[in-house]
Amino acid sequence: MEKELKILKYSDLPKMIEKFISQGYPVLAPVHKGKIVEIEYVQSLDSIALDVLLSTQSAKKAAFPKVEKVLEYTMNKAGVVQHPVDPADSKETILFGVRPCDASGFKSLDAIFGEGPSDQFYLSKKEKTTIISFSCPVADEYCFCTSVGGGPGNTAGSDLQFTSVSKDELLVEILTEKGKKASRIFADLLTEANSAIDKTKFIADVKVVFDLDSVVAKTTASFGNAELWLEQSLRCIGCGACAFVCPTCACFDFQDEQDTKKGVRLRLWDSCGFSLFTLHTSGHNPREVQSQRWRQRIMHKFAYMPEQLKVVGCEGCGRCSRACPVDMNIKEHLTAIREQVTV
């Protein structure tokens, strides 16, 4: 659909959230939780952390929760009875106050879960999520969205995008049919915007630090470059924090939990950085050392996904670098691949 532009007053944001909630839409938004900023359900604007550049956790849990029930069963003398778990059992939800890199991060997850037999647990939640992102007025040294095809005002993946255009006013871009539907809920708070308004004046300037096509080509050619992966991963302790904060990481595990009579099978986030991830029962491990696991992380995002799913598995949000306890920085590692590798 053709984009529509409106103006919303900052002072009307609390009313907007109230309207969503009173009309039965749960609202997920960034919330301060001690030292970190989580994505959680909120009841009013007060609890929403609009003052931070980025939440610690990405927004992926709106459609891909950290823990999710995929099976439920009871056991009796006659055997096992499965109680069907409906993957589509979720509510239409507003995901509010996330950044453009969060919104566009869903395209990687869409590709992974939508490819082949589709994962309706993810797809139906994603379908029912309306994403209201805020463009970024500032960025920090970890951000590199513009190097991976995004940007601080990128609207890809967002249904509505808000941009702060003065201290009192937000520019509202209505981008999709879902966004249009959500905007009707607070239509009385919207006024017409001047169509000549230049959004770029109000967003951060994020410098491009590398040429993506070149990084993809060089990464693709680097499987056998053991020295490169070793050098890049010497510090890596395999904690998996990078994967857990990443908006595009989709690897998962299943675990059963049960008492004597009933049980559930849970799907949980996992990480290719963990040493047990690929360990065979025999003791053999195809990715035995951390450098091979680092290679997997980078190659999956910058070689395998671009080739097979036509999407780069990185949004340049820099969360992995901010979360890394040993200060590994993906922007620097990718720049090094760009500079050191010759193809």
Binding site: I112, F113, E115, G116, P117, D119, F223, A250, C251, F252, D253, F254, D270, C272, F277, T278, P286, Q296, M299, H300, A303, Y304, E307, Q308
Partner: peptide
Amino acid sequence: KCGLGKCGRCNVGK
């Protein structure tokens, strides 16, 4: 884990 190309662990290269 999944058997369907999603869980991310059985890949040999791509």
